[in-house]
Amino acid sequence: MSSFTLYQPRDSGLHRLHPLTKLTLTLCGVATAVVLPGFWPNYLLFALFLLPLAAWGQIVCPLLRAVWPIWWPFVLSLFLVQGLFWPGGTPIVTLGPLSFKQEGVLFATAMAGRILVLIGSFLLLSLATRPDALMNALTARGLSHKLAYIILAAIQIVPRFQAKAETITAAQQSRGLETQGNLLRRARALLPLLGPLILSSLMDVEERAIALEARGFGRRTLRTSLILLSEQPWEKGVRALLLLATAVLILARTVLALR
């Protein structure tokens, strides 16, 4: 099945965890990254929490490879925007008319750490969890199966659309459409590319709807699933502990902020 997820199949403890446990890990990681103050904590969180988990799942390399291309544009922007243009900061390095300000660089470093954990938490989830298993776990907890269908269908359709977009671009270029050059020329290429892409994709929507109805999509009965999820007896405890720790952290941070 081609799909645009990053899922890496491995036979590891992390992969065997119940999807809800991994989702809880990610959400707690995100919440913690946002409330952790200061310079170092987020880098420590990444090194001492996310990386060991990735090592357990045998996905350290895929994780770093996935984090890097998303992280570095943030880092670049942070240092340029906040480092160079921090109003009224103390200059530390001067480059011609511009200079890096101490306050801006500190802020950029702290924020880069937070973004590292934000990105890493989600990528850890997507590398180690099959989306259909995650949706299965969520529907078992009361998520509507229609919403689960929307999410899984989207994940499957996207790569087909990307291929279609490439085909259309190649076809229009072979007819002489220019996709390079000045802004006006590139803007004019937009409609000949978008039109066929959107119109052709809408055309099979109706057939899909009829096919789903014919297979009992709208019925309100108990559904069975092809994927069996297993859960270790201690996982419930781990989830509760994670949520509790995150709640305490958020509370502590709020109290400190209000003081």
């Binding site: 989207a154 359709i157 279609k164 959107i198 994709s201 809408l202 929507v205 109706e206 789903l212």
Partner: peptide, 21 residues
Amino acid sequence: TTLTLVMIPVAIAINVAVGQL
């Protein structure tokens, strides 16, 4: 309707594909 539910994932794919274009 079922048609709406089928349209939504297609719309999401349009969002991604056009965004990348």
